[in-house]
């Protein structure tokens, strides 16, 4: 009984990791940048939802929708102002830039009176509801996470594989200057990618909020999404799903069966194991250079 509940919540948290990992992978596929501020984007989505509900008194769904749209706009803005000028720089430097953006985000949010320094509750209508499936009691918060994530995953997969925009994004990620020559509006596309990525992160934040509460340091959960992306193989969307779910499950089971402390590092131990048996992840592509 307990194990099923543990696995269910593990799957749910795994979905959140998967969504954040989606965000990384989206940005990575298009621009080969790893966005260390992805967790902070998630946090801002949740904070945005809380602010819209508490200060503007919007109902939950409207607040969520507005938060997602605002975050999409913010993502595009960040790309335009800070990322676009540094395209082409070595990866290390750009990673440091995104870390800096993360710091900025956390710092600014901490300055907001009320939500910035406290731990707030996001009043989702389904909070506290419990579903009964096959005799097992499962929290609705977890169930909604899983359902929404699945729908989003399918939509995003379709975007990348069946639309012109998706193929253009792949082209840009492989050879930016050739994409320019082919007439692909590389810069505008990058803005779209960042907007989309921020929106997905915001959705992840809003889904997670009823479970973990909303506070300025929520974004640190984003660090767990790195193992997810590694397991799946950076550059693979299905990989992000598999990775996220795996990490979520492993963590939950580790917390349940193993002594204290293992839960926190379970995700990282899994990465190291992966690097030994399959360095490029389940679905990752081979890295190499042709001479």
């Amino acid at each position: 009984m307990d194990v099923v509940q543990v696995m269910f919540s593990g799957l749910a948290v795994g979905c959140v990791y998967a969504l954040i990992a989606f965000g990384f992978v989206l940005i990575y596929k298009a621009t080969e940048i790893v966005n260390f501020a992805q967790g902070e984007l998630m946090m801002m989505g949740a904070i945005g939802g809380v602010i819209l509900m508490q200060w503007l008194h919007l109902p939950f769904l409207w607040a969520a929708l507005c938060a997602v749209l605002l975050m999409a706009g913010l993502g595009a803005l960040v790309e335009r102002l800070t990322i676009r000028p540094v395209l082409g720089r070595p990866q290390f430097t750009v990673v440091m830039l995104t870390i800096g953006l993360g710091y900025l985000a956390r710092g600014v949010v901490t300055m907001i009176p009320g939500v910035g320094t406290d731990t707030t509750v996001l009043e989702a209508p389904y909070r506290g509801t419990v579903w009964e499936i096959g005799g097992v009691m499962l929290g609705a918060e977890h169930g909604i996470i899983i359902l929404v994530s699945a729908a989003l995953a399918i939509a995003l997969y379709a975007l990348f594989h069946f639309t012109l925009i998706g193929i253009a994004m792949q082209a840009t990620s492989q050879n930016q200057i050739a994409a320019y020559y082919m007439g692909i509006p590389v810069r505008r596309l990058n803005g779209v990618v960042w907007a989309l990525s921020a929106a997905v992160a915001a959705i992840a934040g809003l889904l997670l909020a009823p479970v973990t509460f909303v506070h300025a340091n929520m974004g640190l959960i984003g660090l767990k999404a790195f193992p997810a992306a590694i397991i799946g193989g950076f550059g693979s969307l299905p990989g992000a799903v598999v990775g996220g779910l795996t990490i979520g499950l492993v963590e939950s089971l580790a917390g349940f069966y193993l002594p204290e402390g293992f839960k926190d590092v379970a995700a990282y131990v899994v990465i190291l194991v992966m690097l030994v048996i399959r360095p490029r992840g389940f679905f990752g592509r081979k890295q190499g250079k042709k001479v």
Partner: peptide, 16 residues
Amino acid sequence: GLQLVVYGAVLVLVVM
């Protein structure tokens, strides 16, 4: 959050 903002701003400005 002031220190975070300063550190973040410095990082972003340095890289850019």
